[in-house]
Design a protein around this nucleic acid. Structure first.
Lengths: 207, 207
DNA sequence: GACGACGTACCGACTAGTTGGTATGTGTTG
DNA sequence: CAACACATACCAACTAGTCGGTACGTCGTC
């Protein structure tokens, strides 16, 4: 169910399974046996590819970075000419991803880092890398939008890029608490409105 | 160490311990034995007061609501005359709480709901109540600020109150990933700037 | 003397990780 | 090309320890 089609090896089947199972149950509550069952492999295969459960955690975070990174790289918002348009379209794109069940649209590394930041530094670092690298893909557009307007604000492009990630992560938590994507979408709307106001564009909403 | 002073009974010692231990290690990784050790009570006492570990989880979320609720109710930002000033001072107050180690300023229910939203509905509901009730304490001020300005925007006071919670929760995740309060403070700054822009107040930052 | 608030001792189920082994290549060398 | 050496991928059963939960005893108080 959670495994891809072709004829993937045990390692990638386990990583695919990890994405869905961990996002559903959390990292600590996910057992190795459960992962193996979801991937359709044996425990021996698990420990052949990963020395420990934590090593799978790191690998899963890296794998998450790769797959989502490729997905965002291929997304249509890059085709827009204006950098601010691209940034805003990125946010629309993120909002559009809020479909299906909560485990399907929430973020693996945001989930994992909450449980492991004090107990598994390697996983925390992998999660940090994943978030920070993704945020970094936004910085160039933000800086270009700032430069176009001759802005020299008190905040940096990086801090705004990270703020967008914070809003998304927080929106996921609200979605988990309330059991639906609705609150998350509302929060993303507020984020978009902020950016429009920040760059002097009038939001659609009437004040 | 984590227990309060007076002469508390085992139940409140366990709840106090739960706040710090769960925020540090997460809910699933926190064992009953560990909780008992941190509270200085025995396992018998634990299961005398709580039928199951999950029942403690629910009680801990409720306890979190009570203690933080009392703390926010007593906070100085309520004394300001203008509703928007109160709202903005609330945000400053939240920023001021970002002190000490990450486990000390992060949110119990935000942590717990991530791990339990699919597996323990009772805990999820308790976390939702906690977040939603806290957000609700902001709604009156937001609505008053809107009314004062004759605003009829596309967003609701409730959605803005929830958005502030989303930003804070997301800021906590970034703080956990990066190991410090700095990123969280930056995100709260962005949140404050949004609200100032939204209500037509010029932020301090030069654009 | 009964009842609530604990403490002590323990159990069964589960969990991360191990062990020893098989199947299938992949070079390499006579 | 055949035979050997060696590596990789994987499997099934097992282990040592952990975890949530239980059974039952004890102490103090009304």
């Amino acid at each position: 169910m959670a495994t891809s089609a072709a004829k993937p090896d045990a390692r990638s089947k386990l990583l695919d399974a990890a994405l869905t199972v961990i996002r559903t149950k959390g990292y600590a509550s996910t057992t190795v046996d459960e992962l193996c069952a979801a991937a359709g492999v044996t425990k021996g295969a698990f420990f052949h590819h990963f020395k420990t459960k934590d090593e799978l955690g790191v690998a899963a975070a890296d794998y998450w970075s790769e797959t989502t990174g490729a997905m965002f790289a291929a997304a249509p918002y890059h085709q827009l000419a204006d950098p601010l348009d691209r940034f805003l379209a990125y946010i629309d794109f993120r909002k559009g991803l809020l479909q299906g069940g909560v485990p399907e649209f929430t973020c693996l590394v945001g989930t994992m880092v909450q449980e492991t930041y004090e107990t598994a530094p390697a996983i925390r670092d992998a999660c940090d890398r994943s978030i920070s690298r993704h945020a970094a893909t936004l910085i160039a557009d933000i800086e270009a939008a700032m430069a176009e307007r001759g802005m020299t604000p008190a905040w940096t492009a990086q801090s705004l890029a990270l703020h967008t990630q914070a809003v998304l992560q927080g929106a996921f938590i609200l979605a988990k608490a309330k059991g639906g994507a609705g609150v998350a979408a509302d929060s993303v709307d507020h984020l978009k409105r902020y950016i429009e106001l920040l760059f002097g564009r009038t939001p659609k909403s009437i004040t």
